[in-house]
């Protein structure tokens, strides 16, 4: 090991500043390349993301599923598991939740809403627990299984809405019947901010607390850092893998039903705009730390929200927001590493 007292790592603030500058340079180059004025587009971006009450709400609404999916990746991530399965868990959550809604459409909100959310969490947990169990007991790579199960989850939604759950009133359009009003998520008075976002924020805070202190957090840390020693003392890695994957899945499941209820008002294909993968990247970007995840999710939400607005008002393709998001991830992952490399 090389310990060189003269090489000092960059202070965090300097890394942050450099990364931001590099990102803006790269983004400016991109906008210049597609024939837009970088300065104007970027000013617009900020305005559309946070310029007024409406755009701020839009930003937070976009952030909700990203936040939940990021938590879904970060929770098993604390055990050292690499789960990319939030997308599939999100769809399973939507399926289970929808099943609950469709099974008792006349029930009062007091019963229907909690039951639906519970069902959605169970669906996601079920979809997360399977790769968790395979990993824990049979050492099957969880990244591969979660990846593959994403496809199954998405296609199951398609199979259902094209098949048994298609509402005949829709005249061939693949979607379930419209959800009853009883299942509407409560909103913060005077805004469009629904329960999903608040739930996500609360869960992020709860996770931050739960994974930083207490005996359970210690056990997870021990197993994550040295499984063999943990097992020497009787801690069960398989059990932790199942539980944490299921917990992550449950959170993603909430994102699924939340999108179905709040955005579409029914279950239909195109439920998720790649929230699972975005969430995964956010979680890794933040090193599976829950408070940074909360902040970065909102940042990415703003980017996506502004992308939609840009297309409408500035005639910039909406996909440029996704490209911008990609550039952001690459910069944030690459620049700090390159800085440290230069120092070493």
């Amino acid at each position: 090991m090389r310990i060189d007292s003269t090489a000092r790592p960059w202070p965090f603030s300097a890394v942050l500043l450099t990364t931001a500058l590099v990102f803006f340079a790269v983004a400016a180059a991109f906008f210049a390349a597609i024939g837009q004025s970088p300065l104007k587009v970027m000013t617009d971006l900020v305005l559309f993301a946070a310029g007024d009450g409406f755009s701020r709400e839009e930003t937070l609404l976009k952030a909700a599923p990203i936040l939940l999916c990021a938590l879904a990746a970060a929770i098993p991530g604390r055990l050292g598991l690499i789960s990319v399965g939030a997308e599939g868990q999100l769809h399973l959550g939507a399926i289970f939740g929808t099943a609950m809604v469709l099974s008792m459409p006349g029930a009062p909100a007091m019963i229907l809403l909690p039951a639906t959310l519970m069902a959605a969490a169970c669906g996601g947990a079920f979809w997360g627990a399977i790769p968790g169990w395979l990993r824990g007991r049979l050492a099957v790579n969880e990244t591969i299984t979660t990846l593959v199960m994403n496809y199954i989850g998405v296609l199951m939604v398609n199979a259902l809405v094209f098949g048994p759950w298609r509402d005949p009133v829709n005249l061939g359009w693949p979607a379930t019947a419209r959800f009853p009003d009883a299942v509407d998520l409560p909103v913060l008075p005077g805004t469009r901010l629904h329960l999903g976002l608040m739930l996500g924020a609360l869960l992020a805070l709860a996770c931050a607390l739960a994974f930083s202190r207490g005996i359970r957090a210690e056990r997870v840390r021990i197993l994550a850092m040295n499984r063999k020693v943990g097992e020497t003392f009787g801690l069960s890695f398989p059990r932790h893998a199942v539980v944490l994957m299921a917990l992550g899945g449950a959170v993603a499941g909430l994102a699924g039903i939340g999108e179905a209820i709040a955005i579409q008002g029914r279950l239909q294909p195109g439920l998720s705009l790649g929230y699972g993968l975005t969430g995964f990247l956010v979680a890794w970007l933040c090193g599976h730390r829950f408070l940074p995840i909360l902040l970065v999710s909102i940042l990415i939400g703003g980017l996506l929200a502004a992308g939609d607005a840009l297309q409408l008002y500035a005639k910039v393709p909406a996909s440029s927001a996704v490209i911008l998001q990609g550039l952001l991830f690459v910069t944030v992952l690459a620049v700090p590493g390159l800085l440290q490399r230069r120092t070493a």
Binding site: I215, E218, R219, R221, I222, M225, N226, K228, V229, G230, T232, F233, G234, L235
Partner: peptide
Amino acid sequence: RENGIVAGLSLETNLALRSIA
């Protein structure tokens, strides 16, 4: 070093592994 301790955790935690379990 491989089988007896968790390298990334403190001496205190490593002493307490049994209690934690």
